[in-house]
Design a binder for these strands. Structure first.
Length: 427
RNA sequence: GCCGGGAUGGCAGAGUGGAUAAUGCGCAGGCCUUGAGAGCCUGUGGCCUUGUUGGCCACAUGGGUUCGAAUCCCAUUCCCGGCGCCA
């Protein structure tokens, strides 16, 4: 959510920023918001005047009654004002609702370094690490590899739960857990506090953390309950301090969450959906930071560094891109993606690092104060970044580390969590 | 799931149908002081408004009763206690 005061005082600055996204709908929403906000304030001022009148009458009634005098005339007068207030309040409510609806849908202001572009293809390369593996045989994709090793069962997954669900078996299930454990240990060493969050959230906190379209396209709702399965640990972590005022000396708060992630993936047609890449359920270790506004750009880079160290320790070849205006989404002010090399030569997203500035914090009402007893100073900033999403990392490991005989080398950093196992192979 | 108790400012805590939500702590500013502290004075939630020594709203949330609700009623959320169920 944007700051309505900024929009009132500096609409051109907001307009120019929204314009960078190249979507005229945003500018229309901005115009509508300004209009409804102005009308809301005008009507509110009038309502307040009526309320003042009404309160005066109430006080007169109290005084008359105390003096034992007739009050019926005053009561009648009060009823008339009540009717006026009721009518006006309905209009006030309508304007406020319209303004709020638009305010909740306007995207975050973009950082100056975000490149302009239409979609994924316009994201700008920042750096690459490692080189594409060279094979003297035709490399298989991860699904073929895992099936040949008899470590995955997608058919029975589809039988019991539908497309997008799989059974991981034996050492591959263990590899999933090993990756989680490896990422957690690494993040805890970086002074992040490990959190296992609720895997469901109520609607109210959920509206604070995400784009409203996600309720249709991403989240599973539990029937007859006000509960949604989380799409990522980012969401319960962000909502952790909803409606709270944090103390400056407790900031930054660095967390690492681990959870399964549930996603409907509506509208995924035509995108790469093979095997482990795009599933309705996967596991993820997530970095999250609450910090002072002045610090968020430093933490954005710090979390990026953390993620890349993890990939490097696993020996995975990847590229980092600065995500362009057409691909960045509603909430982030700036976003880096890490794209991993896959056996078909494409680089696909395995992790995503977003500085949401005060956009999430304002929606969730998470503020900070400089000292105990003082009034809140402002909203905190939030940054979220994948540490490791196990499914896509498994995919990359299988495809990048495959051998001619169909076996797959396991990175040595995982050995202690794999009972010393160095290779996935047919037993 | 059932029964009972509760939710008031940054915190503690009064207020059981009628004026400006008492008081204390904390915090901020001022006076005093070489400085600090103590003491004293003022301020301390949100929104609208620069007609400003202004107005409105706010006692968990949403409804209702009433001329008038922190106060009475209903629903919801959460917390505490007891019972039940359960890995």
């Amino acid at each position: 959510m944007l700051d309505i005061k900024l929009i009132r005082e500096n609409p051109e600055r907001v307009r120019n920023n929204l314009n960078r996204r190249g979507d005229a709908a945003n500018l229309q929403m901005l115009d509508g918001l300004i209009k409804h906000d102005r009308e809301w304030r005008r009507l509110l001022t009038r309502t307040n005047e009526l309320r003042r009148k009404r309160r005066k009458i109430t006080n007169e009634i109290a005084a008359l009654k105390k003096a034992g005098k007739e009050i019926n005339a005053q009561i009648e007068k009060g009823r008339k004002v009540d009717a006026e207030i009721d009518a006006l309040e309905q209009q006030v409510g309508k304007q406020k609702q319209k303004a709020h609806y638009l305010l909740m849908r306007l995207p975050n202001l973009l950082h100056g370094s975000v490149p302009t572009g239409k979609g994924e293809e316009d994201n700008v390369g920042v750096r690459a690490w490692g080189k594409p593996p060279q094979f003297d045989f035709k490399p298989k994709n991860h699904l073929e590899i895992a099936k040949d090793l008899r470590l995955i069962d997608d058919e029975r997954g589809a039988k019991v739960a539908g497309h997008g669900f799989l059974y991981l078996k034996g050492d591959l299930a263990l590899l999933d857990l090993a990756l989680q454990r490896f990422a957690i240990d690494f993040m805890v060493k970086k002074t992040h506090l490990l959190i296992e969050p609720p895997f469901m959230l109520r609607r109210e906190p959920y509206e604070g953390v995400t784009d409203l379209a996600d309720f249709e396209n991403v989240m599973y709702k539990v029937e007859n309950e006000d509960l949604y399965l989380i799409a990522t640990a980012e969401h319960p972590l962000a909502a952790l301090f909803m409606d709270e005022v944090l103390l400056q000396r407790d900031l930054p708060i660095k967390l690492v969450g681990v959870s399964p992630c549930f996603r409907k993936e509506v509208g995924a047609h035509g995108r790469y959906t093979k095997g482990l890449f795009r599933m309705h359920q996967f596991n993820k270790v997530e970095q999250f930071v609450f910090c002072l506004p002045d610090d968020s750009w430093n933490f954005h880079e710090e979390l990026q560094q953390n993620a890349e160290e993890l990939y490097q320790a696993l020996g995975l070849h990847y590229k980092v891109v600065n995500v362009c205006t057409g691909d960045i989404g509603t909430v982030p002010a700036k976003r880096y993606d890490i794209n991993v090399w896959m056996a078909d030569g494409a680089y696909r997203e395995a992790g995503s690092n977003s500085n949401c500035t005060d956009y999430q914090a304002r929606r969730l009402n998470i503020r900070y104060r400089e000292k105990e007893g003082q009034a809140p100073k402002g909203f905190v900033h939030t940054i979220n970044n994948t540490a490791l999403a196990t499914s896509r990392i498994i995919l990359a490991l299988l495809e990048q580390n495959q051998e001619k005989d169909g076996s797959v080398n396991i990175p040595s950093v995982l050995a202690k969590h794999m009972n010393g196992l160095q290779k996935l192979e047919v037993h």
